[in-house]
Amino acid sequence: MTLLADIVTVLAGLAGAGFFTAGTLGLLRFPDLRSRLHALAKADSLGLGFVSLAVLVQADSAGTAAKVVLVWLLALAAAATSAYLLAGEERP
């Protein structure tokens, strides 16, 4: 069982890292604020999801697993709200 868990952790971790890099590339390359926000909010949230999955599999108790998921959900909500606020600042 642990071997499977380790494989999932490694794969999910790599996927997460990939999405984070994509998000950062988007931040650097995209021309205006809104497209950057788009890249960051989406890619990083998904990356965090994969990292949470990687950690979730290694969690020893249900409590820790629930906490990891809670962290992810809160991060999603925060990312969405701050992206909305930042986008709202720059009305065309």
Binding site: A80, T81, Y84, G88
Partner: peptide
């Protein structure tokens, strides 16, 4: 504040 922020706060504050 815009409604999305008020929604976010009322969601996050209890947590």
């Amino acid at each position: 504040a815009p409604p999305i922020v008020r929604g976010f706060v009322s969601l996050v504050a209890p947590v």
